[in-house]
Design a binder for these strands. Structure first.
Lengths: 178, 178
DNA sequence: GAAATTTGATTAACATGTTAAGTTATCCGG
DNA sequence: CCGGATAACTTAACATGTTAATCAAATTTC
């Protein structure tokens, strides 16, 4: 009906029919990254409201959670366990410190390093949020099945390990020996 | 500077020993959200360099990929299939349009709706990136195992479905006793 | 032991995630 | 018709993801 519809001049398609382009790629919605993204979002959707009601984002929660497992921890190590990039962590720590949920000091032995620990206020917050989080986690486990959940985590872990080997293997794909 | 070290006044711990706090929660690094996050990151780490070398982010790629499967698509539907929130999509479409990778027009029947399609330039870009992406995907499949990969995706899909049921079920949990 | 390099952390700049508010266009009951 | 309610985006505002640059402190090298 309308004049020009088919913007792709190189295509021999006429207009009118919702013709899919022929780019031979995997069904998009079933790609592994999309599957993982959707699954994770489905999980986090359960937790976010509770965290938010306590004034915490997912990442802030991860950091505080990680801090409850140690006395003090260095920034780099914290980034590793909370799975955050340095810049993100820097910003969040600045905010958490301003809210008195954590405490920092500089390592005596190495003035470059920062040591972080949770404050008593932060600990109280964790203790306030934990029951709900645990309840949600229990509900998820129940709905999906504890057995299956454990299996899923095993498979995810193995996927990680499989890909870790690729990290460097593909580096020389262009150079061939550099 | 080096004066006080133990900031948590309520804790009876001395300093020196890396004593973990006692907050009875699941091992942090093995939580389902973390497992999914790490797995997805391990996967995307493989693709990002290639996408980046073509000037595309992961999300921009998702959008263009989704557009190759249709002639035109409405913004809301595109958000659904590319799994992006409206605001993110709005910004990205603005950018992609400015780069002439997509084309938009307003639906004649409903002036609120926008119809999006990929441009020939966008299509060429897809065709330039696709081979490398497919090769990476094939390598991942090979390393992890095609059988296992399919099984993993099935399990992720079932996890989604399990949690979809929770969405509304937990709504009234707060008003019951708060 | 001073210069060069490396390391730990932060800052900068840009893109996206997330929720809330705003805009314009449809729909709908009176 | 008309005005309120909805719907489809879009903007706004703030937080994080991501890469590059910066900066100070530690390590290595000559």
């Amino acid at each position: 009906m309308a004049g020009r519809k088919s913007p792709n001049g190189s295509r021999s398609e006429q207009e009118g029919t919702p013709e899919p382009r022929r780019v031979p790629m995997r069904e998009f919605s079933r790609s592994l990254p999309m599957s993982l993204l959707r699954a994770r979002e489905a999980v986090m959707r359960q937790f976010r409201p509770s965290l938010r009601s306590h004034g915490l984002t997912e990442q802030q929660w991860r950091i505080l959670r990680a801090l409850t497992a140690v006395d003090t921890i260095e920034v780099t190590e914290l980034a590793r366990v909370a799975f955050l990039l340095g810049p993100s962590l820097s910003r969040i720590l600045r905010d958490l410190e301003a809210r008195d949920l954590i405490e920092r000091r500089i390592a005596k032995a190495d003035l470059r390093r920062g040591e972080v620990s949770i404050s008593s206020k932060g600990l109280k917050l964790i203790e306030a949020v934990a029951p709900t989080s645990e309840a949600i986690y229990a509900e998820i486990t129940h709905r999906y099945g504890a057995r299956k959940l454990a299996e899923l985590q095993d498979m995810l872990g193995e996927l990680e390990r499989s890909l870790a080997a690729m990290e460097v293997a593909g580096e020389g794909e262009v150079e061939a020996d550099e």
